[in-house]
Each structure stands twice: as C-alpha cells, then as structure tokens.
Design a protein around this nucleic acid. Structure first.
Length: 277
DNA sequence: CGGCATCCCTGGGAGC
DNA sequence: TGCTCCCAGGGATGCC
C-alpha cells in the first residue's frame, strides 16, 4: 500500500494513542522480514515509553524516552493495526506491541505484512544519521527544501525519464508508483519525458503538482487499494480522486481520450497521451 | 556512474 | 467451482 500519504496517515493515527504510552509487552511472531529483525527490538523497547511518531520518506519513526527509535517500513503489503488487546492475532501478524496509554487504556499495535517486504528495526537516536536505509534518502517533497534548484542539481547529467526520477527515493523520498502517475497527470507532463528535455516551467509544474497531490491525499487518509486500510480500519478516500492510476478502461476527464498503460522500469504507468506531453 | 533486469514473498483477481 | 497465470503500492543488488 504505502507511499508517503499512507505512511503519513499511519503516523497521524499512531500519534493519537502512542504519545506517552508505555510499552507493556512485545511479541515477535516472525523475524524474517525484508531484513532480519534484531532481538534488541524486544529487549530495549519493553518498559520504555513512546514519544510522538514521525515520518521520513516511507519510513515511520517512533522515538522513545530511552533515546531509541523504532523504525518501521511497510514494504508493499505492510499494515499497522491499532486494535483491542484481547483480539486474536491474524495470519501474517509478525509483530505486536501491547501499550498502555497515559489514560490507562490498553491497545495492541500490530504489524501485519503478507509479502514480508517490510522491515522493523530499533536503533539509538545517534544512529539515525548513519542508518543504512535512511542515509540514502533524498529530500522530503513537502518540505521547503524541495525546490527547483534542488531538482535541477539532482537531474543534471541524467538521461532517464521523469517518472523514474519521481520514484527515486535518493532524490525525492516517499513517492511510489501510484502517486508518480497522479502527479504527472496533474503536471500535464508525460512520464516518458526525458529529464534532460524538461524546461524550467516543466520543473516548476512538477514541484507544484507533487506538493498538491501528496497534500490532497494526506487530507483524505491516503489511498485504499488492495485491502490497505488505515490503522483504525477506515478506508483512505484518495482512491476516489485517482485520475489515471488503474484507469485503462476509462477516459481522461479532460479530453476523453483513453488512458494509456505503459510499463516503465518494470512498473505499470498510467497517463493521458494527449494531455501529458 | 547510470540504467535496467532480477529477486525477495504471498494473495487476489482474471481467464479458462 | 477449481486451477493456473499474472500482477501487485518497495527497494536492494548485480550486471552491462
């Protein structure tokens, strides 16, 4: 499921219950996710108290009072569930954290991931800068640092198409396959357009569209497709606002031309070949 | 170095 | 209904 807006939605939902919650118990059902989960996740986290979660790219980071950080990546199929403590665990629940909130309520936080492309890690606050996954990440697209100067610098000497740039986590952190298509439709630029042929105006359109689409998606709880739900079980309504993603049997709402599907770097890419140039 | 293919894993939907 | 095939929102790795 999870691109930046979905991960942000998860962070917001976790913030509601996690801040100042005490970790009563950790249960690890499976360690072999994308990388093997370390034993210290359980050792260090139990009895610690959690602080406000935040997001970096598609990673969720949950700091603790003992200056550790719980790092969660949802991969392709990972979900966080906030549920009643008494509920039985389901298939593909790999990690469970029982917490007691500052109001003495008990919840289970579940990490469920059928494909196990996700990852859970625990690191000390000081290790954040050098973490092998986090240190590669590019700019936050919703931050002030995502500027035309930044983008120009990053695409200099590159010849690949703009869609690959939007999806490159080392350049912009958090955009995945759905939002790359939606952003480029909004910007009216073809996903196939080589970055060395983009005008100043094109780059500005891309930056504007990126911020617009991501903010809009966050405001409605992300996109629910393929069973992905928000942590409280609610749907994310951006699925109703998708203009091109998965719409090959439908027409462009601007020009009535059928939406085109093309595989770019192995990923399905949707666009209107009339409106997007 | 850049760009692309391949691989990790399971489930759901399409098509027969 | 049941089987097979293909596809899936991520990202590291290895090859050219």
């Amino acid at each position: 499921m999870p691109e930046l807006p979905e991960v942000e939605t998860v962070c917001l939902a976790l913030s509601e219950v996690l801040i100042n919650s005490k970790v009563k118990k950790i249960k690890i059902f499976r360690k072999d996710l994308r990388w093997k989960m370390k034993e210290n996740v359980k050792l260090y986290l139990e009895k610690d108290t959690l602080k406000k979660p935040y997001r970096r790219g598609k990673y969720i980071l949950i700091p603790t009072f003992k200056k550790n950080i719980l790092l969660i990546h949802l991969g392709m199929s990972g979900q966080i569930k906030i549920i009643d403590n008494k509920k039985n665990s389901s298939k593909h629940d790999h990690f469970k954290m029982i917490i007691e909130t500052s109001e003495k309520k008990i919840f289970s936080i579940i990490y469920n991931d059928p494909r196990r492309f996700g990852f859970i890690d625990l690191l000390h606050k000081t290790e954040i800068e050098n973490h092998f996954l986090l240190k590669k990440l590019g700019v936050e697209p919703l931050s002030k640092d995502f500027t035309i100067e930044y983008l120009k610098k990053k695409i200099r000497k590159k010849s690949t198409c703009i869609k690959n740039i939007l999806m490159d986590q080392a350049i912009i952190a958090g955009i995945g396959n759905i939002y790359a298509s939606e952003i480029l439709f909004r910007a009216k630029i073809s996903p196939l357009k080589r970055v060395d042929s983009l005008s100043q105006n094109n780059l500005n359109q891309i930056i504007y569209a990126t911020k617009y689409i991501l903010k809009d998606a966050i405001s409605v709880g992300g996109t629910s497709i393929r069973n992905h739900l928000q942590p409280d079980g609610k749907l994310g309504y951006f699925v109703q606002k998708l203009k091109v993603y998965g719409k090959t049997k439908e027409t462009c709402n601007e020009c009535n031309n059928f939406i085109t599907l093309k595989i770019i770097s192995g990923r399905s890419t949707f666009f209107c070949n009339i409106c997007q140039r």
